[in-house]
Amino acid sequence: MQFKLIINGKTLKGEITIEAVDAAEAEKFFKQYANDNGIDGEWTYDDATKTFTVTE
């Protein structure tokens, strides 16, 4: 399945899409990606669109 991350950071904005087995695997990848890029904010997930959003 495809999952999307929308980044609304103070210094980094954009979107990335990955293939993952389930939402838990996608969330783990996205949170590591955000951590690696210094993004720390509020997370939301929309199951209907398979979209995670992080907002700083």
Rank of each mutant, 00 (worst) to 15 (best):
G38Y: 08
F29P: 01
V54F: 05
E25W: 12
D40E: 05
G14W: 10
E15V: 13
Y45N: 01
T49V: 15
E56K: 09
D46S: 15
A24M: 08
E27V: 14
K31M: 09
F29R: 10
V54L: 03
I7W: 10
K13F: 07
E15A: 10
K4H: 06
F3R: 00
E56L: 08
K4R: 09
N35S: 09
T55N: 13
K50W: 11
A23M: 13
T53L: 07
K13M: 15
Y33P: 00
K10I: 08
D36Q: 08
V21T: 14
D36P: 01
D36G: 14
F30A: 13
E15T: 12
G38K: 15
F52C: 01
G14E: 11
Q32Y: 11
I16W: 04
V54D: 00
D46A: 09
G9M: 05
M1N: 09
T49R: 09
Q2W: 15
Q32H: 15
E42S: 10
T55H: 11
I16F: 05
A26P: 01
M1E: 12
A24S: 05
L5S: 01
K10P: 03
F29I: 09
V21E: 05
A48G: 12
A20I: 12
D22W: 05
K13L: 09
V21A: 05
T51V: 13
K31T: 04
L12N: 08
M1G: 11
W43L: 08
V54Y: 02
I39D: 01
I6L: 14
A48V: 11
A48N: 06
A23H: 15
F29V: 14
Q32C: 02
E27T: 14
D36N: 12
D22E: 13
E25D: 14
K4M: 04
D47K: 09
G14D: 05
K50N: 11
W43T: 01
G41P: 01
T49M: 12
Y45F: 03
A48W: 13
V54A: 08
D36H: 14
T51F: 06
E15Y: 14
T51D: 02
I16S: 10
N35A: 13
D40P: 13
K13P: 15
I7F: 13
E42P: 04
Y33I: 03
E27C: 06
I16L: 15
N37I: 14
E15I: 11
A20S: 11
L5Y: 01
F3K: 00
K10T: 06
N35V: 10
D46P: 01
L12Q: 12
E27F: 14
N8L: 11
D47T: 13
D47S: 09
L12I: 11
G38N: 04
T44V: 13
M1V: 06
A23L: 15
G38A: 10
F29N: 05
E19V: 02
T51L: 14
A23S: 12
Q32L: 08
N35Y: 11
Y45L: 03
G9Y: 05
F52G: 00
E19N: 06
F52H: 04
E42D: 14
N37R: 11
G41A: 03
G14R: 12
F52T: 01
F30P: 00
I18Y: 10
A34G: 15
L12C: 05
T51H: 12
T44W: 08
K28R: 11
T49C: 03
E56Y: 13
G41K: 01
Y33G: 01
E27N: 08
K28H: 07
K10F: 04
I6E: 10
Y33W: 09
Q2N: 15
I18R: 13
G9K: 13
G38V: 12
D36K: 12
T11C: 04
F3I: 03
I39C: 02
E42I: 09
I18S: 05
T53N: 08
N35G: 14
Q32T: 07
F3T: 01
T49Y: 15
Y33H: 10
N35E: 14
F3A: 01
T55R: 14
L5Q: 00
I18E: 03
E27G: 08
E27I: 10
E42G: 12
T49G: 08
I39A: 04
E56H: 15
A26N: 00
L12H: 11
A34D: 00
E42T: 12
V54T: 06
F52E: 00
N35T: 07
K10H: 04
T17F: 04
E56V: 05
Y33M: 07
D46G: 05
V54P: 00
N8D: 09
K31Y: 11
K28P: 03
D47R: 04
L5T: 01
G41S: 02
T55G: 03
E19F: 15
F52L: 02
I7R: 02
A26E: 00
I7H: 06
E25R: 03
D36T: 05
I16V: 02
E15N: 13
V21Q: 10
